[in-house]
Nucleic acid binder design. Structure first.
Length: 203
DNA sequence: CTAAAGATGTCCT
DNA sequence: GGACATCTTTAGA
């Protein structure tokens, strides 16, 4: 048995119906799921521990609030696709699209607990501290080598990037707070994280 | 066309 | 707690 741990057999990609629902519900249920990135023979895995919901049609903080543009068009398409955008001149952020096609919505993946491929993540992030590998949306994309090339990628295929079901389904204690780094929509407590998890970006 | 802000991270004090 | 890097997108003249 190789020291990297579990094999790939147990990684079942989440299917379309999971994503084709209300954004808030998808956001909550993504907690505890596994983010999987395949880089050739290397497999990176992390448990999603922090997310934020951006429900396009009634959420002034959403990129999609003012209608479709070239950047946000994937938010209006089929659910279960990656929405990757570039910001602050240097960072990428990863979202998964939600809601039925034509209705915009996305969940920002803000933090993950690394469980496999940790040595590769350390190289990508240029740090040895496991806690700091993916405890923030731009740190996470760096650790998992997610760039604009994956924008629009179908997450149900189980290929380069996908979300996977977890073996254990014990109920999680979820905390909700206002979202981070936005100036509008602060009245909505649409940031969700696993209570007490040390890999969240902020408690 | 020009300008300013941005779903951030890092380093500094 | 604050400055700053760095460039795409979007709003406004």
């Amino acid at each position: 048995m190789h020291s990297s741990g579990r094999g790939t057999a147990s990684l079942t990609p989440l299917k379309r119906p999971f994503y084709e629902r209300d954004t808030l519900r998808v956001a909550r249920e993504l907690l505890g799921k596994v983010l999987v990135r395949r880089l050739g023979a290397t497999l990176l895995e992390g448990v999603i521990v922090e997310v934020e919901a951006y429900r396009g049609y009634d959420d002034p903080a959403s990129h999609a609030y003012r209608g479709p543009t070239r950047r946000n068009q994937v938010m209006f398409g089929q659910p279960g696709h990656a929405y990757v955008y570039f910001t602050y001149g240097m960072h990428y952020c990863l979202n998964v699209t939600t809601e039925p096609a034509g209705q915009p919505g996305a969940v920002l993946i803000r933090a993950a607990q690394p469980v496999n491929g940790i040595e590769r993540m350390k190289k990508e992030r240029r740090t040895e501290r496991i806690k700091d590998l993916a405890n923030g949306p731009a740190k996470l994309t760096r650790a998992f080598a997610v760039t604009r090339a994956l924008n629009g990628h179908d997450l149900t295929l189980g290929t380069e990037l996908f979300m996977a079901e977890t073996a254990n389904s014990e109920p999680l204690e979820i905390v909700s707070t206002r979202r981070i780094g936005i100036r509008v929509g602060l009245d909505r407590p649409w940031r969700f994280f696993i209570k007490g998890n040390p890999f969240v970006s902020r408690p």
